[in-house]
Design a protein around this nucleic acid. Structure first.
Lengths: 222, 222
DNA sequence: CCTCCTTCTTGAACACGTTCAAATCCAGGA
DNA sequence: TCCTGGATTTGAACGTGTTCAAGAAGGAGG
């Protein structure tokens, strides 16, 4: 076994152990000492591989995003309705995230920090963000929805923002099985779909254009 | 000097000192030990009056909210346009908050925690929240905007949510003088106003109704 | 087999938020 | 004046995330 393989093994052991303990006891109640002890390494060693406790979480994010993508894509096959596709993707996220709601809360708190690399808007997260926006692009492009072309181009990014809103709600959701988040999706998706359809009406066109323009300008450097 | 007055003096001394140090050096870089030393009391004494470092911030929130209310109300006099009124209130908030942008960031990170009493959605914040919604009610009711009555009843709460969105953007805003946040307000307010006006159109009515209903249901226990 | 050199690992030490038992203060009654 | 009981104040101590100087491991070259 080469040097690099051993190293990778240690790294993976640490992150796996951390995720288990986070899930079992919550983020705050899991100490770095506990993680190190449970993984059979020293505290300093954990910091050799991960620059901070927060950093340990990044790997977890990526895994969850990956699982969402994998689980969501099959749901899109053979479904052409825009609302149905969007609904499927979002409910699927709620399913994937469900087991982690308890401590996921803590994660997203860290993520709210604009300085944090965990922020969904940060450079470090750009890969994951692009992947999520890509999924939304599939939602739009695989559907039969009729849209103003400019809106169509911008819609994936808008939908991603909307998804961030759903996540924010989910974090605050204390209902059993996060039903309220599900209700939010069930009821807001048709609304969005209807709004998107309305966007082709003449009276609505200037508003729609201005929304697209605003988002484009705001996205320029943020 | 009575006992209670002395006590109140100490409390106020601590919070004032804390706010000064937070503003000078940022929230994270200001230690409880530094606050205590600068105020000339012991660390334990600070904890006698405030249950945590976070708690020290609550007073600051209240003060900022108070200043916003005081500064915003005069701006509403003699202005009947809905968009103009909303714009004035939001830009005024940006002005009031400007000096604290640097460490305000840190505050709002704490506030993102649903468990935290600092969360704008928490019970502890309900007084401040109601006051802010009240201001939005003034914005709506003092204006000449024509609205579906149901939407009109719900609009202040919706506008407060919109304001939370602006705050979220502001927290992430790194532009000089937070110009980008100002641009967001300048451009999104007319949009909202136009949308509100459109809400009276027949095609739009069901969408508008559904939005109102959704918000009402979601607000029931959150 | 020895010697470097890089990579990995260690655990004590540090800084910070927080707790708590003990000390101090002080108004009001005896 | 002295005593008493609650309000206030203290600072040492605890648990935590993080750092760092020092050492161990292990391969490359002699």
């Amino acid at each position: 076994m080469q040097r690099v393989a051993k190293s990778e093994e240690t790294r993976s052991l640490i992150v796996t152990t951390a995720m288990r303990l986070f899930t079992e006891n919550g983020y705050n109640r899991t100490t770095m000492r506990a993680i190190a002890a449970e993984a059979g390494v020293s505290v300093g060693n954990a910091y050799y591989y991960f620059s901070s406790k927060e950093q340990l979480v990044q790997g977890f994010y990526d895994e969850m995003a990956g699982r969402h993508l994998a689980a969501a894509r099959p749901l899109l096959d053979g479904e052409a309705g825009f609302a149905a596709r969007l609904r499927a993707v979002l409910l699927c996220w709620l399913d994937v995230a469900e087991p982690y709601h308890r401590f996921g809360t803590q994660f997203f708190v860290n993520a709210a920090d604009p300085e944090s690399p965990l922020s969904p808007f940060s450079d470090d997260s750009s890969a994951a963000r692009e992947a999520s926006i890509g999924l939304m692009r599939e939602v739009v492009e695989g559907s039969d929805v009729k849209l103003d072309p400019e809106l169509r181009a911008q819609l994936p990014e808008l939908l991603w923002l909307y998804q961030m809103g759903v996540v924010l709600f989910w974090v605050h959701d204390r209902s059993a099985g996060t039903q309220r988040s599900r209700m939010l999706v069930e009821r807001s998706v048709p609304l969005l779909a209807r709004l998107a359809a309305l966007s082709r009406l003449r009276v609505f066109r200037p508003v729609s254009r201005e929304i697209v323009g605003l988002i484009q300008d705001l996205a320029k450097r943020d």
